[in-house]
């Protein structure tokens, strides 16, 4: 059976949805399923889709082109999860997995959310250093501006402020 979407590759993902009493069936190849996937995996309470579907995303064979050579033996030093476990369950093991498997997870994040970074809330306490770093980055920009505008007195003030903040880090 060929994929309903691209009609080129073999369908390997089969979905059935109920919509207003009507049964809708979809047969997709992995590439098209991944594209459509965003629509399905966000259905949080629908437990049949998330782990399996996400699991198949994480371990999608065509992704390996995107992946750096990975060492399947790596386990998270904090919780003991391996990338294979993550692939199978579609779930991350702990907060430390995010840094342990940063490279392996990158393509997944890119697919789920595009190439975006967090721009929202930063926690006051756990994010103290991050807030400080953002402040320093902002001051560094202003320092450059001050120098290029030849406002040297201001530049000195900004430089001192940066030094103070950097000590706090």
């Amino acid at each position: 059976m060929y994929c309903d979407e691209c009609k080129q590759k073999l369908a390997s993902v089969h979905l059935t949805q109920m919509f207003q009493g009507q049964k809708i069936e979809m047969h997709l190849c992995e590439t098209c399923a991944a594209k459509k996937g965003a629509l399905l995996i966000f259905d949080q309470d629908n437990n049949f889709t998330i782990p399996q579907l996400l699991g198949s995303f994480l371990g999608n064979p065509y992704d390996f082109q995107e992946l750096q050579p990975i060492n399947n033996q790596t386990v998270c030093p904090n919780c003991g999860m391996s990338i294979i476990n993550i692939t199978q369950t579609g779930k991350i093991g702990c907060s430390e997995c995010y840094s342990t498997f940063d490279r392996e997870l990158e393509p997944t994040f890119r697919r789920i959310s595009g190439n975006t970074e967090h721009v929202g809330k930063i926690p006051n306490r756990s994010g103290e250093n991050i807030l400080l770093q953002r402040k320093i980055d902002e001051l560094k920009n202003r320092l450059q501006q001050a120098v290029s505008n030849e406002q040297y007195e201001q530049a000195v003030e900004i430089r001192d402020a940066i030094k103070t903040f950097e000590k706090e880090l």
């Binding site: 579609g90 991350i92 995010y98 994040f109 789920i112 970074e117 967090h118």
Partner: peptide, 12 residues
């Protein structure tokens, strides 16, 4: 929490 990824959750 991670500065780049934000709040870290069990499902990506």
């Amino acid at each position: 929490f991670d500065s780049r990824r934000g709040y870290l959750t069990s499902c990506p």
